[in-house]
Amino acid sequence: MDDVKIGEILLPGDEETQERREKKVRDRFWPTFRKAARQIPFSRDVVAAYYCAVDRETPLRVRGTLLAALAYFVMPIDVIPDVLAVVGFTDDIAVLSTAIAMINRNIKERHYDAADDVLADQPDRV
């Protein structure tokens, strides 16, 4: 992560960039999350962040920051390739935890409720 700074990854981008990221995130979030769930110590927060990012009531800048972090998470090629056992998701975890810390007050109870519902419904698949 030395060459790529987390702050650069988390830039919200313009509306076109956010739309492109949202499509990638919607298409790839669940398969990627299922692979990484056991390695992410704050899975509930990540799922709640997903619901916050796709919620049209979330402020645009917050959505942009979350979509940037989630897009980084779902991309198969990043600073540390996700296929590497144990360490593959460490950079993703760093980016996600930074984004969540930055916008935490914008993740609402309804986002956590949605995360709880998904995680409770599919414990063997997550």
Rank of each mutant, 00 (worst) to 15 (best):
V25F: 01
K35Q: 15
D92Y: 03
D3L: 01
W30G: 02
V79Y: 00
R125S: 14
R20C: 09
W30E: 10
E109V: 15
G88C: 07
K23Q: 12
E19H: 05
D45F: 12
P81H: 03
V46G: 05
V83K: 00
D92A: 05
Y72R: 09
D117L: 15
D45N: 15
R26D: 02
N104H: 04
I77S: 01
Y72D: 03
H111A: 14
I93F: 12
I100S: 08
I107Q: 05
F73H: 11
A36C: 13
Y50V: 10
I40H: 10
T90D: 15
Q18I: 00
V4G: 00
M102T: 08
L70V: 03
G13C: 07
C52R: 05
T90L: 12
E15K: 03
A101C: 00
G7Q: 10
E16Q: 12
L96E: 06
K5N: 11
R34V: 05
A53D: 11
D45V: 02
M1A: 06
I107H: 04
W30Q: 04
V126A: 09
T90R: 12
I9C: 03
I103V: 13
N104Y: 02
N104W: 01
F33Q: 07
V25P: 02
Q122N: 13
V46L: 12
N106L: 01
A115W: 12
V4W: 08
I77Y: 00
I80Y: 01
I93W: 05
L84S: 01
G13P: 01
V118W: 04
R34A: 11
A68H: 04
V47H: 08
H111G: 10
E57T: 07
L67I: 01
P81G: 06
K108H: 12
V54E: 07
A53T: 08
F89C: 07
T58H: 00
A71H: 07
R21F: 08
K24M: 08
K24F: 05
V54Y: 09
V46E: 07
E16A: 13
D14H: 02
Y72Q: 06
A101V: 02
R61S: 00
D55Q: 02
V4T: 04
P31I: 07
R63V: 08
R110L: 05
V86L: 10
N106H: 12
A115Y: 14
D92P: 01
E109T: 12
L10M: 06
I93Q: 08
A36S: 15
V47Q: 15
L60R: 06
L11H: 09
R38N: 14
R34T: 05
D91T: 11
V25I: 11
D78P: 00
E16I: 07
V25M: 05
V126D: 10
D55L: 02
D113Y: 11
A99E: 11
L10T: 06
Q39H: 08
V74M: 06
N104F: 06
R34I: 03
G64Y: 01
A49I: 10
T32I: 03
